[in-house]
């Protein structure tokens, strides 16, 4: 990442991701269109109740007996509010709320949930990470483990860490989730990307998180 992108990320006034987080704060406190409860009415002040939460997601969801990531947790809470409109993946509302909740963990070391029930899902995520896919037959690991720091034509290959998401990407001219980034990498090797929210993504996220620990959360980060 260039010095100017890093500087933009560090300075909250310059960081465009902070606008989204601000929008998330407003949504947190607002009554939803259907007249149901605000997030704040159940969770109170997010700077206290949501501190460190994003750092330990994905977590095990008792209801579905599967891992759930932060975005789907927020969607599930939203869906329980009577009359509240759905918050689709990548919608402005969901990305903004995720950025706001994520911001409450900024600086907190990523801490994978030690729940043993997550282990098989994490292992599946690792298998996905290591398997060559697509017409170009490349695995995530081929680039992000073995060749991080190398140049793929003009692009510097990063280590592939998830700790800055959702983030602002200059190329997108907007905010995007980790899953949006993963879809970019998959279509880049001409592989079929699963739909947003698919189990494959949550499993990949689990593995990426354990691989990144204990890096601190940087949400909302900035990328070129």
């Amino acid at each position: 990442m260039s010095a100017s992108t890093q500087a933009m990320q560090r300075d909250d006034v310059q960081n465009p991701g902070m606008l989204a987080a601000g929008q998330g704060e407003a949504l947190w406190n607002a009554q939803p269109p259907g007249g149901g409860q605000s997030c704040a009415s159940c969770h109170g002040d997010a700077t206290a109740s949501m501190k460190g939460v994003a750092a330990r997601y994905p977590a095990f969801d008792e209801a579905t007996r599967r891992p759930i990531d932060l975005q789907d947790r927020i969607r599930a809470c939203n869906a329980r509010r009577p009359g509240a409109p759905d918050m689709p993946h990548e919608s402005e509302e969901l990305v903004a709320l995720s950025a706001y909740v994520g911001l409450q963990s900024r600086g907190t070391p990523t801490a994978p949930d030690p729940d043993p029930r997550l282990a098989p899902f994490r292992a599946r995520g690792q298998a996905l990470f290591e398997r060559p896919i697509g017409q170009l037959n490349l695995s995530c690991a081929a680039c992000h483990d073995a060749r991080a720091g190398g140049r793929l034509a003009g692009a510097l290959i990063p280590q592939g860490h998830p700790n800055g998401y959702p983030l602002y990407r200059l190329e997108w001219q907007g905010m995007g989730s980790l899953q949006r980034r993963l879809r970019n990498c998959m279509t880049g090797v001409r592989a079929e990307a699963p739909p947003f929210g698919a189990p494959d993504f949550v499993e990949l996220e689990l593995y990426l998180q354990s691989r990144a620990a204990p890096l601190a959360v940087e949400t909302p980060a900035v990328r070129p």
């Binding site: 060559p132 896919i133 697509g134 037959n137 081929a142 592989a191 079929e192």
Partner: peptide, 16 residues
């Protein structure tokens, strides 16, 4: 890591 340019076997999850 060099892609197979004229072979379609042994590949996984290729986009439609």
């Amino acid at each position: 890591i060099m892609p197979p340019y004229f072979e379609t076997t042994g590949l996984h999850r290729v986009a439609p």
